Computed example of a mutant assay.
Amino acid sequence: MKKTLILSMLSVFLLVACMGGKQENSVELTESGLNPQKFVTDVDGKKTGLYILRNKNNMEVCVTNFGGRIVSIMAPDRNGTMRDVVLGFDSIQDYIKYPSDYGASIGRYANRIAHGRFSLDGVTYQLPQNNYGHCLHGGPKGFQYVVYDVAHVDSSEIKLCYHAKDMEQGFPGNLDCSVTMKLTDDNSIDIRYEAQTDKPTIVNMTNHSYFNLDGDPNRNNSEYLLMVNASNYTPIDSTFMTTGEILPVEGTPMDFRQPTVLGEQLSKDSEQLKNGHGIDHNWVLDTKGDINQVCASLESLYSGIKLEVYTDEPGIQVYTGNILDGTQTGKKHITYNFRASVCLETQKYPDTPNKPQWPSCVLRPGEKYMSHTIFKFTVDK
């Protein structure tokens, strides 16, 4: 009780400390214009809130423990103006009302598992089939829809924890996992995932932020420069499921080894682009788990904001917002239209449990799952 009270008081302090003078009905708003009170509620008997991280450069990242979501990121453009560069909603009620992956900490298994089924140590497990007959992002109540416990929070770092019960969404093993997000003074969001289990299981966690580096969701991603440090990718069928092949990107619209205008590639005639309704594919990274190498970058020529991604994971899913269709209204009452963003999801390859030739996602008792990703924001003037 005492620890909970201290955390609650600290949360209020952080909210008040990061205001910037904006008000709404006498309530201080974040720099991104969020009202923290709209994030305070009960979901499944657990309290939710909004937590604000800041660094010495006045960059601000707002996080809610509902789904472990990044709600807003205020990053400087080439003129020093702070822009909110991710999509999301301005209240918990909208996150509940409109199911989405905006900014979420995805688990227990990010991406797809074919037919929602896999075998481990001779036992076959059936998962929910919530996407074209497959299991996507941990099922209809994956980690993006649970309330994480706030284990630690200060002015620049938050640690979120969740206990997933044995057979929750069909996955074996009691899983204790955590997501730690730290906003560093070089304008990076350093994200570390950890997990332990009491029974053999599978784990694959990621962050599902929808980046709009223009800071204006009315603009689409067609003029972005995308680079993916990968010579190969995993093609998909018409249900978005990987075929099991690993193919070279050379000579295809999937070749982003050099910074390439995204819209030009998306406009090409390609069976893979038709299958994905655009890009919704995994790349086999050439970085081979080296966290010190840039595995992908995305740049807005409009704002000058550039995002560099680093990871120790073997793959990254690039998703170009193909199902955004104008039916959802996000922060500041802006409608999210077709391809208003790009997702860069570091991961094990999709359907790895059914493809033993690919990097393993199996976690056993006594082992620790660890995954590390960095989103670094810079400016090209």
Rank of each mutant, 00 (worst) to 15 (best):
D255T: 07
S178T: 14
N204R: 08
G276V: 02
E245H: 12
M241D: 01
S267G: 12
S188E: 07
R257F: 00
T242G: 09
N232L: 11
D214M: 00
T180L: 03
T243G: 13
I279P: 06
E168Q: 13
I191L: 10
N212W: 02
M241N: 01
S231Q: 09
F256E: 03
V249M: 05
S222N: 13
N174C: 07
R219G: 02
N275W: 07
P248A: 04
R192V: 05
S188I: 03
D237K: 08
D269Q: 08
I279N: 07
E223V: 10
S178Y: 14
V249G: 04
T180R: 13
G276D: 02
Y233E: 05
M181R: 09
T242P: 03
S270M: 01
T242W: 01
T260R: 05
I279A: 13
G278N: 04
E264S: 12
I246P: 01
G173Q: 09
L266D: 01
V228E: 12
S270P: 02
S178I: 06
E264L: 13
L213W: 08
G276E: 03
F240I: 04
S209M: 13
S188K: 02
D214P: 00
R192F: 00
M167W: 03
E250N: 12
E264D: 15
M205V: 10
S209P: 05
E168D: 14
